[in-house]
Each structure stands twice: as structure tokens, then as C-alpha cells.
């Protein structure tokens, strides 16, 4: 089964879609990010910190509608993904 990625806020503006299925073999978050940045280079400017060469520290991850607990960025990148997983990268929230 493909991996589904949900896009919100700036990420939705860049991809111009609310969600997307990726059929490529993806085993962890690092591989997913590489695929996303290859597909949408501008996403890198929003969720990737070039100085630390890692995810921005204020970006949270949700897997299958559950927020992943706070963890080191290195651990975020090595997070294992399974077929059919639904992933979202979440920027800091701002309610009405």
C-alpha cells in the first residue's frame, strides 16, 4: 500500500493539494523527506533547517492521526514507516 502524506498551511500552498499518495518504496522518514524535497523543492525552505541539516525543530510529525511524541531530530529521521501509513508534517499551530 502507498504512503499517504497530508499537507496543511504553507505545505498545502506549495504542493497545491491537501494530500498525496506515494507508491515508491519508503522505509523511514528520511527517505520520505528525500522524496518530498525531490518532488517539491520549496518544501525544504519550510520544514528543513539547513544549518543543522535536519528537520526544523518546531516541526511536529503525525503518523496515522497520532502526534509523534517529542524526540531528537535524528530519531525523527530514522522513524520507521510502514505501507499504508498516513504522515503529516505540522508547523506550529495558530488557532482563531
Amino acid at each position: 500500500m502507498p504512503i499517504e502524506v497530508l499537507y496543511f498551511a504553507e505545505l498545502k500552498d506549495i504542493t497545491k493539494k491537501p494530500k498525496e499518495l506515494f507508491n515508491e518504496p519508503i522505509s523511514n522518514m528520511k527517505e520520505l523527506l528525500a522524496l518530498l524535497f525531490k518532488t517539491y523543492n520549496s518544501l525544504r525552505n519550510v520544514i528543513w533547517d539547513g544549518d543543522s541539516d535536519n528537520l526544523c525543530s518546531n516541526v511536529s510529525i503525525a503518523v496515522n492521526d497520532v502526534l509523534v511524541p517529542q524526540m531528537d531530530n535524528e530519531d525523527k529521521l530514522s522513524l520507521s514507516l510502514s505501507d499504508g501509513d498516513k504522515i503529516a508534517f505540522l508547523l506550529p499551530i495558530s488557532g482563531g
Partner: peptide, 23 residues
């Protein structure tokens, strides 16, 4: 609590035609 905890994002659209997501 809702201002800090619920997964929503707000974009302000300005009179000058620009927009900005607020974080």
C-alpha cells in the same frame, strides 16, 4: 488551551495583496 493545542493554522490575507501564515 485551544489556542495552543488544536491542529489549526491561520493565514492572514492583507489589504496589500500579500498573505502570511501565523505561527
Amino acid at each position: 488551551r485551544y489556542k495552543k493545542e488544536i491542529a489549526v493554522w491561520k493565514r492572514e490575507d492583507f489589504q496589500d495583496g500579500t498573505s502570511e501564515w501565523i505561527h
